[in-house]
Nucleic acid binder design. Structure first.
Length: 152
DNA sequence: GCCAACGTTGGC
DNA sequence: GCCAACGTTGGC
């Protein structure tokens, strides 16, 4: 099993929205590296840290899991969608995504600020300067360590 | 709202 | 294939 972190702006789609919907396609990813992680890396059952970005307290707020393999993102075909991509065709889709399933909320937000101040996580991609990836792998050791922070 | 750090695009 | 211009992300 692999571990991941996925960012979402809570104004657009929050952990509460995912809890309400249960399962949701993770649409709107328009970055090749992030797409490739979903397409080539994710398997059903993989665990995901749900991360809130661009908000008062950016950080990890919950846990989700991968509920499908990658398949074409419908929004790329819809001219009315803000994620529309005129170069994408049904024969050759450019963007794919997975379905994501709600697991649980964390008891508290583990903030980016907190994560940045931990020597144990110095190598984690999330806390590296200038990192803008919205989908990234998380090392098992980092996953376990971050979860151990929840109770503190 | 600002701006640093990227990623993408397109002219050459 | 280079690189300047432009667009986006996301913390602050």
């Amino acid at each position: 099993m692999k571990y991941w972190l996925m960012k979402s702006e809570p104004d657009a789609f929050s952990i509460d929205d995912l809890e309400r919907n249960g399962i949701e396609p993770w649409d709107g990813v328009r970055n090749y590296q992030a797409r490739n992680f979903m397409r080539d890396g994710m398997k059903v059952g993989d665990k995901i840290f749900f991360y809130h970005s661009n908000c008062d307290v950016p950080g990890i707020v919950g846990i989700a899991s991968v509920a499908s393999l990658a398949y074409p993102d419908e929004s790329q075909f819809n001219p009315k969608s803000k994620y529309y991509d005129e170069k994408a065709t049904r024969e050759e889709p450019r963007w794919v995504h997975v379905d994501v399933k709600f697991e649980r909320k964390l008891k508290r937000t583990i903030s980016l600020e907190e994560l940045k101040n931990l020597d144990e996580l110095a190598d984690m991609a999330l806390v590296r300067k200038g990192n803008r990836l919205s989908v990234m792998p998380v090392a098992k050791g980092d996953w376990d360590f971050i979860l151990s922070l929840e109770k503190k």
